[in-house]
Amino acid sequence: MNVFQEAAIVAGKDLRIEARSRVTMTQILPFGGVVLLLFAFALDQKKILRQVAPGLFWVCVLLAALLAVSRSFSIEQQNGARDGLRLSGLDGAAVFLGKAGAIGAELLVLELVLGIGVVVLYGIAPASIGVLLLTAVAATVSVAATGTLYGVLAAGLRVRETLVPLLLLPVVAPVLFGATRAFELALHLHPHSHASDAWPWVGMLSLFAVIYASAGTLAFGTLLEES
């Protein structure tokens, strides 16, 4: 088996567990929806909501990502499953790609639902779909890769739930910034802005995605063994 086939086995297992336990459906998705709704009530002005919508969207995604990462590693704490993963002889890079892939897939579903929420609640008309999609994919890969890397680092610790946000949020702050700017430009939320102005931000996000995914692929195996 090559590393991608092994990754598919790990991702399939994680997604099957999520489909069975429905934590994403019953906790993470409603959490994101509630955050969007709370902001809508708190700001209560369509004009302000439209302007801050991209930032709120990505803050929601990041907060939900923290839950998804925590969940992804809490299932490995059950019944010594983490030891089982190590005993299987799977390549550490494959485990990383599989777990990050599963988290990324869950986040993409979440983003789709939140996106619909933003359109409905904040009155934003979708535009430049290609830029939005590429931005979402690049940012999601970055967040999932970083979350998976810090997730395994904190997995064996009692303070896992509080440590992961502390480690993860500063590292993904540039992703939040870049994705928000790209969305603002793609959705023409600033006067005289063009969708084409978003491409440099998409490029920066893609670079982050490659760096974070590469770092995770290289470091995860050692962290899985030693942490």
Binding site: I9, K13, Q78, N79, D83, G84, S88, G89
Partner: peptide
């Protein structure tokens, strides 16, 4: 060992299939 190395939300068959394929 003292633990099963299995996942609570997967069935016996699914846990065994994962163990076999991962190995």
């Amino acid at each position: 060992g003292h633990e099963t190395f299995c996942y609570d939300d997967l069935s016996v068959r699914e846990n065994l299939r994962f163990a076999a394929r991962a190995s």
